[in-house]
Write a protein that binds this DNA or RNA. Structure first.
Length: 517
DNA sequence: GTTCCTTTGAAGGCA
DNA sequence: TGCCTTCAAAGGAAC
């Protein structure tokens, strides 16, 4: 795991944090800075039209790459290298993101995001799936908080705005409070820093000009989440991390604010949910997902994520460092915006039922706690009977109750040394093919898995076939695609740790792994 | 409509 | 302090 040395320290306002990104696009930046003309704007509009046409026939855009389908596997090694290079380029140089990072600021949350006026430079058209999440870095530039850009066309937001939804009709997306951010055109939002200085009808700029002048990232947060008093940040600036309480679906409803749902929503205002800032891997996934989908014609996120996890490990430290740095800034910004927010605030949304179930387990004879107590096990250190879980009894969670341990279970419990699951995985990570190494504690579901040490999770994950369990053949098929992809990549990276881990993650047998080695 | 799957990393809670 | 859990994104599939 690349540990960032945080060269410039963690101070949010450090200018050095912007240097790296500025260097990459400095040339274009200067050019664009001087070249913004009405002609550019016209080109921009034209590009928007073109993009719109492209979006109407996505197959055309993806088709070429999709031809490879799952056949992308054979070229994997090269592909991987290509991806790595492409990532570099994609992040900073590739023509896919012309002028990046200063010429565009598409909304990472906007599938159809095309351009952004966020920069006081000329925005350029951006393919939806090509939109670069690292545009989050853009706002970190002081430049975006410079005084109101005189060259910014007044109608620019209307032409090049960031929006989050597929529809071309922007007018209906935003129901913004009068006198608030609503005065920002729909395309303006978190990524429209250049607009802040001039806007601020609701005190938009003031809170930020001081605190976030040099290290801010709004890009990840959808402008569509610009909330009224209930959802707006105390600073008066709606942070895109704020989402309606019930998640994506509500979010969509919220965006399509002219729909009747909003009326109902207004009647029942709910406390907005501030999402967690994305970590490095999540940022990486957001960027690479589209590529993987196109290359492998996979649609199932689970399979895609496996590949992405594999590729993540294949990245160099420098490549990963970019994402770690971005994630760090995201967290810092998030921390500044919501100093009182805690990840705990969002606990229980998805797992509420499961937690309720766990709570119930405390009163159930089959609960892990009582299970251990029943068999005289140490509540903290001993395994919970047959499932060998420390704190949760898998069988109980499956609904079968915590069974009585068998003799072998008890012997396993008693047999010293009994490494903790994490230690066991760490050992396996260090000695992946160690003859005496026993498999990690069985877990029927990844939901119940134990968290391995950092960067070892994928290497110790149960084979997908197991975790898939009762999944349909379709799901298996999708997963197998990922497996095949991973398998061959593992072979082609012959002997590499990452290949091994990927192969293991893909459920390859030890025999296969050995042969691969 | 909700949950699961799948990944890694961050953060919080618990013992 | 170490371990464990939950959430963050994504979207198809299953329930």
């Amino acid at each position: 795991m690349p540990q960032l040395s945080s060269g410039g320290g963690d101070d949010l306002g450090a200018n050095d944090e912007m240097i790296a990104f500025k260097d990459e696009g400095e040339q274009e930046e200067k050019i664009q800075e001087n070249a913004f003309t009405e002609r550019d704007l016209a080109d921009l509009k034209s590009s928007l039209v073109n993009e719109s046409e492209i979006n109407q026939s996505p197959s055309a855009a993806v088709g070429a790459r999709s031809v490879r389908a799952c056949v992308c596997v054979p070229k994997h090694r090269e592909h991987l290298d290509g991806v790595s290079k492409h990532q570099d380029g994609g992040m900073y140089k590739t023509p896919t993101y012309p002028g990046y990072p200063f010429l565009m600021l598409p909304d990472p949350y906007l599938p159809n995001s095309s351009v952004s006026p966020s920069s006081n430079k000329v925005s350029v058209v951006q393919q939806s799936h090509g939109m670069h999440p690292l545009t989050s870095l853009l706002p970190y530039s002081n430049e975006h908080f410079s005084p109101s850009p005189p060259h910014l066309p007044t109608d620019m937001s209307q032409k090049t705005g960031v929006h989050r939804h597929q529809s071309q009709d922007l007018s209906g997306y935003y129901s913004l409070p009068p006198g608030g951010v609503g005065q920002i055109t729909p395309s303006m939002g978190w990524q429209s820093q250049p607009v802040y200085p001039g806007l601020s009808p609701c005190g938009f700029r003031q809170p930020y000009s001081s605190n976030l002048s040099s290290a801010t990232s709004y890009s990840r947060f959808p402008h569509s989440l610009m909330l009224g008093p209930s959802g707006m940040h105390p600073t008066g600036i709606p942070h895109p991390a704020i989402v309606p309480p019930t998640g994506k679906q509500d979010h969509d409803q919220y965006d399509r604010s002219i729909k009747p749902q909003e009326v109902k929503r207004e009647k029942e205002p709910k406390k907005p949910v501030i999402k967690k800032p994305l970590n490095a891997f999540m940022l990486y996934m957001k960027e690479m997902r589209a590529k993987v989908i196109a290359e492998c014609t996979l649609k199932e996120s689970a399979a895609i994520n496996q590949i992405l996890g594999r590729r993540w490990h294949a990245l160099t430290r420098e490549e990963q460092a970019k994402y770690y740095e971005l994630a760090r800034k995201e967290r810092q910004l998030h921390m500044q915006l919501y100093p009182t927010w805690s990840a705990r605030d969002n606990y229980g949304k998805k797992k509420r039922r499961k937690r309720e179930k766990l709570q119930d387990s405390n009163t159930d004879p089959g609960s892990p706690k009582k299970c251990r107590a029943r068999f005289g096990l140490n509540q903290q250190t001993d395994w919970c009977g047959p499932c060998r879980r420390k704190k949760k009894c898998i069988r109980y969670l499956q609904g079968g109750g915590c069974p009585s341990p068998t003799s072998s279970d008890l012997s396993a419990i008693d047999s010293p040394p009994s490494p903790s699951p994490a230690r066991h995985r760490l050992y396996q990570h260090q000695h992946p093919l160690s003859p005496g190494s026993s498999p990690p504690p069985a877990s029927p579901s990844s939901r119940l898995r134990l968290s391995p040490p950092t960067n070892t999770r994928s290497q110790t994950r149960l084979p997908l076939q197991q975790s898939a369990g009762k999944r349909s053949d379709l799901r298996h098929t999708a997963a197998k695609h990922a497996h095949a992809h991973l398998e061959l990549s593992g072979k082609q990276t012959h002997g590499s740790t990452t290949a091994l881990s990927a192969a293991k993650a893909a459920g390859l047998s030890l025999k296969v792994l050995t042969e691969t080695q």
